[in-house]
């Protein structure tokens, strides 16, 4: 029964990769992935919240009474989300402008609450850190993959990170004559892309 640290870490990267295997936490998955950069930023913010809320929930797991555990988890998660929001405004303002309302929405992201309830409240701190990191990085990779696909087709660019002075990434990947498929960066395009990626994941998983 006892799983190793590496197993807890790697399960989030493929086996239980949240958006594609469990189809959880879809609000940010569909909402922010208009560019690869947004996907990475949102993924990292969620990872930060996930790891720290897992640490706190795991360390308080014997103190929190079971009848009010959900309320306690939400307080802990909300605290870290606001910390993320403030820090992002102070140090990565351009990213904050793009992610906007989706940062406060991490509070109600079912992945974060789900890990607190299903894992961190029953396991040790070290295992919970491994779990949080694994799920978080898996989430980041999924968002980055979906974001890059949408940005590539919808805007003909691939942005990894924007600094105030320059953009790290490739502009006009398919050359200047490519007519961007604007549908992809709008909401319906997100559903289509997600559907295609789910299809691909199931295809790979069924073998």
């Amino acid at each position: 029964m006892a799983k190793t640290l590496t197993q807890e870490f790697t399960k989030g990267l493929w086996e239980d990769i949240a958006p594609f295997r469990l189809v959880l936490g879809l609000c940010p998955v569909l909402g922010v992935t208009t560019t690869m950069e947004n996907g990475i930023g949102m993924g990292l913010a969620t990872t930060f919240v996930l790891v720290f809320s897992n640490i706190l929930v795991a360390s308080l797991r014997n103190i929190i009474p079971s009848k009010v555990r959900i309320a306690c988890f939400i307080i802990i998660i909300a605290t870290f989300v606001v910390i993320t929001e403030l820090l992002m405004q102070a140090f990565a303002y351009t990213l904050f402008l793009k992610l906007g309302v989706f940062i406060p929405l991490i509070v109600v992201n079912c992945i974060v609450l789900g890990r607190a309830e299903a894992f961190a409240s029953k396991n040790s701190i070290t295992l919970s850190i491994a779990d949080g990191l694994g799920i978080g990085i898996g989430f980041t990779l999924s968002l980055a993959a979906l974001g890059s696909l949408r940005e590539l087709l919808g805007a003909n660019n691939l942005t990894i990170w924007t600094t105030p002075t320059s953009i790290i990434g490739v502009q006009e990947v398919f050359g200047p004559h490519f007519q961007p498929f604007t549908f992809m960066v709008q909401a319906p395009g997100a559903f289509v892309c997600l559907g295609l990626m789910l299809c691909l994941m199931n295809l790979l998983g069924s073998k």
Binding site: I64, I76, A78, T79, L86, Q89, A90
Partner: peptide
């Protein structure tokens, strides 16, 4: 007690951080 202590700690931490980052924001 647990809920109160958690809320107080979280509120205190956040207002502290808010003051600390306000100028930079």
């Amino acid at each position: 007690v647990v809920l109160t202590v958690l809320s107080v700690l979280s509120g205190g931490l956040l207002s502290g951080l808010r003051n600390a980052t306000a100028a930079r924001i």
